[in-house]
Design a protein around this nucleic acid. Structure first.
Length: 343
RNA sequence: GGCGCGGUGGCAGAGUGGUUAUGCAGCGGACUGCAACUCCGUGUACGCCGGUUCGAUUCCGACCCGCGCCU
């Protein structure tokens, strides 16, 4: 079971396996690896961090030995990583896997990364920490409303789309205007226009045509998209609760203590704002109640799952699997073989 | 048994004779370089019965429940 797709004229296969946290993605992915010539690429903005194992529910050593995951443990928790970084890295790994005649299996719950990979990103400048710091200071002095008003002047379209309270996105939009001299919305639009001329718009999915970039950013693979989740929300909530308690048993707090003890990490870093880590940090730093830690940690995880499901609910071309059902690997294989020429 | 205090949406917690805080959780949603982020939207609930009143969660009475004190 291997083939060269490079010169066959057929796009090589790739599999997306998506789902909310605690839905059983990792187990299913490992099972698929036993049955298909595929290699796993993690699509997870938290598992990228080294030393963050228990709280991210990273596969353990035995599982990794059976089914290696690419793009985990690639960053130090002091570092930041972006959707653009992910797209670049994932494309590189996918090419490498495909070159070996194998199938890239992209597994994870970071929907923004899936979207960036699948649809590409507009040609925008990356984050500029110094500029962001300067903008933050400006906000301190002039007020956040003033910054939003400035955006309304420079880029009314973006300002209408970004709520004044959404400082993170407001800063990003201002950052782009200041660096490029062009409104971020115009950059989105110019690429949408190209899209229109090439006739690539998929009418059924207007949402996804909003930002699809030019041909070159289209993913050169035949993608089979699978999503897995419990069919009932309450079941997902219970799985989340049990898993959080299990993490605590496994020494999650020690893991966070170790991170805090480094001395160079702060609670506002992306890594330390991850679900569970943020709550554990507060609990340890403020000597909180254990019941509160559990309640807030579990709630934060539920909220994460809800946001992931919001993405997934409107995601086109997904084939759904139910976590609690047996035989998901068989079902997945059936879907995969019916949608690709592989085998 | 007597006296006192209190019973407000899933939880916490304000308050008012008519305009029905707030926080958390839940639910729905947005999201192009921090995305496990960030942000938006969403609930007439006032223990029970009767009375006063044009109108009662708010005033009065009885009752039930909880807490404290007393005999």
């Amino acid at each position: 079971m291997s083939a060269s797709f490079a010169d066959s004229g057929i796009l090589p296969p790739a599999i997306f396996l998506m789902g909310p946290t605690a839905s059983g993605k990792t187990d299913l992915a490992i099972e698929l690896c036993q049955r298909l010539p595929c290699d796993i690429i993690s699509v997870d903005s938290a598992m990228i961090y080294r030393g963050m194992d228990i709280g991210t529910a990273k596969p353990d050593a035995a599982e990794l030995a059976r089914a290696p995951h690419r793009l985990i443990d690639i960053c130090d928790p002091a570092e930041t990583y972006s959707a653009a970084d992910f797209r670049r890295d994932a494309l590189r790994e996918m090419a490498e896997i495909t070159a070996k005649g194998r199938i890239p299996l992209l597994v994870g719950g970071t929907m923004m990364y899936f979207k960036a990979l699948w649809h590409g990103l507009s040609d925008l400048p990356s984050a500029d920490p110094d500029l962001r710091k300067a903008l933050q200071q400006e906000a301190q002095q002039r007020g956040w409303e003033a910054l939003h008003q400035e955006l309304a002047r420079l880029d009314p379209t973006a300002a209408a789309l970004i709520h004044p309270n959404n400082r993170q996105r407001l800063l990003r939009a201002l950052e782009v205007v200041r660096i490029t001299g062009k409104p971020i919305s115009r950059i989105w639009q110019s690429q949408r226009a190209q899209q229109d001329e090439s006739g690539q718009i998929v009418e059924d999915y207007p949402y996804f045509t909003q930002w699809q970039a030019d041909e070159s950013s289209t993913l050169p693979y035949t993608v089979v998209q699978l999503a897995i989740a419990p069919s009932e929300r309450r079941v997902l909530h219970e799985r989340i609760r049990l898993r959080f308690l299990k993490m605590l048993d496994l020494g999650f707090l020690d893991e966070v203590r170790t991170l805090m003890a480094r001395g160079d990490l702060t609670p506002d870093l992306p890594s330390m704002r991850c679900v569970g880590y943020r709550q554990a940090w507060t609990y340890l730093a403020e000597d909180g109640e254990r019941d509160t830690l559990v309640a807030t940690g579990v709630a934060a995880t539920r909220q994460l799952a809800k946001r992931q499901l919001t993405w997934l609910r409107k995601w086109p071309e997904v084939h759904w699997l139910a976590s609690e059902t047996g035989q998901n690997a068989e079902k997945a294989l059936k879907i995969i073989s019916s949608r690709t020429t592989f085998n």
